[in-house]
């Protein structure tokens, strides 16, 4: 906002490379924004549809069970778990722990791995339940 462009930036600010901690950090924001818009929208629509009675719920269910909606449901499931796990990681870091390079990297990778595993587990459970 009020930075004097004539003054140089510290040279170290331009020297960095991607790491899992950066990916998890930006994914926390992206998944949060996705849940806050798409997730919250679907959630409110669902509640309004329940309150509206059988017809309004049938209309919601029509969209919710459309085959391409599965992309949204699986996407929201993954976003939920990724945001939840990186949020828990943030709690640990808020307490001042987990900043050692190896520990920090390990738990950043763990949030990525477990978000995918939990998403796969939930949808395997749902799909296998349908087939049974």
């Amino acid at each position: 906002m009020t930075r004097n462009p004539d003054r140089p930036l510290s040279p170290h600010l331009t020297i960095w490379k991607w790491g899992p901690h950066m990916l998890v950090s930006i994914l926390h924001r992206i998944t949060g924004a996705g849940l806050a818009t798409v997730g919250a929208g679907v959630f409110v629509w669902w509640l309004v549809a329940v309150a509206g009675g059988a017809d309004s719920y049938a209309y919601f269910a029509l969209w919710a069970t459309w085959k391409w909606s599965l992309i949204v449901w699986i996407g929201l499931t993954w976003a939920f778990f990724q945001h939840l796990l990186s949020g828990l990681r943030h709690f640990v870091m808020d307490a001042g722990a987990g900043f050692e390079l190896k520990t920090n990297k390990f738990w950043a990778v763990m949030t990525l791995v477990w978000a995918i595993l939990l998403t796969a587990a939930v949808w395997a459970y749902i799909i296998l339940g349908r087939l049974a």
């Binding site: 806050a36 919250a40 929208g41 959630f43 409110v44 509640l47 309004v48 329940v50 309150a51």
Partner: peptide, 15 residues
Amino acid sequence: SLFAAGLAILSVLKI
């Protein structure tokens, strides 16, 4: 966010 929360709250109360 207030509008969406209002819709959700009203729906829960209505039910």
